[in-house]
Simulated assay, not measured.
Amino acid sequence: MKKLYCFDFDGTLTYSDTMFLYLKFYNPSKFRIQFIKHIPLFILLKLNLLEAEKVKKSFIYSILKGEKKEKIEKKSQLFFDQYYPEIFRGNALDFIKNIDYSQTDCYIVTASLDIWVKPFVEKFKMNLLATQAEFKDDIFTGNFVGNNCNGVEKVNRIKAEITDKKYDKIIAFGDTFGDQPMLAWADEGQFKFFH
């Protein structure tokens, strides 16, 4: 029986969102300054007066724009070394350890940026569908390639990836409103399964 597992990352497999954790790890002093500057945007976001994608893009841009790809990749590996496995839910790690990869294809489908999620995905031997960081001449532009991988975009990315594959069962795991389209699309949607 061939299965497909689609896992959201932040909050589903981890205890919390990794964006703030990573950006703080990357440059603590710049993070503090930009966090304070972004407080008005965070408030508007909480009041549903701004789109999450715009705030996210602005915050990431303010800290990582102009950074070299090589430096970002090194920092992402150091981030992994420091935070794996402690930021992960124990039962999520147990579940992953018991996956039979000969019968199961696994994807982490996340709105987080590919740059810092990649080392974790490689550790799990899974595939990654994420919001993609845009680089020009190996310098991060601060922009994303394509759409933020959230909501309906998660389903679009999965469908584009598995066009020529057949599965007996598709199971999706998520924990927020942004995962609902993926959970509804799958044969089986597991909400807060590891909580």
Rank of each mutant, 00 (worst) to 15 (best):
I162A: 10
F80Q: 06
F95I: 05
I158S: 02
F124D: 14
E153L: 02
I72V: 13
I96A: 09
G178T: 08
F140V: 05
E73D: 15
Y84V: 08
W116R: 10
D105V: 07
R89T: 00
S102A: 10
I99D: 03
S102Y: 06
K68G: 03
D81P: 11
D175A: 09
I96R: 12
G66K: 04
G146R: 09
T176I: 07
A130N: 04
G66T: 01
D94N: 15
L93N: 06
N147L: 06
A186G: 12
L93G: 08
V152W: 10
E73Y: 15
T176Y: 07
G174Y: 12
K123P: 13
V145Q: 14
I99V: 11
A130M: 09
G66M: 03
K75Q: 15
E153W: 03
E86F: 02
K65F: 02
I162P: 12
Q103P: 00
V145P: 07
S76R: 15
P119I: 02
T104E: 01
N147V: 00
C106I: 07
D179I: 11
K71T: 15
G90R: 06
E161T: 15
E70Q: 14
T131V: 02
A184W: 04
I108S: 00
D94R: 14
A133L: 12
K166Q: 09
F88G: 04
A133G: 14
F177P: 00
A111F: 00
D137S: 11
F135Y: 15
N143A: 15
F173R: 03
S112H: 01
K125E: 15
T163P: 07
T131D: 05
Q82P: 10
K154E: 07
T141K: 12
I63H: 01
K154A: 04
K118Y: 02
A184V: 09
D105N: 12
D81W: 01
A172M: 13
E86S: 07
R157D: 08
K136L: 12
R157C: 06
G142T: 11
A130H: 05
T131N: 02
T104S: 08
D168T: 09
G90Y: 00
I72Q: 06
D187S: 11
C106M: 05
S102R: 14
I99Y: 02
P119V: 04
M126N: 05
T141N: 13
N98Y: 12
S112G: 05
N143V: 06
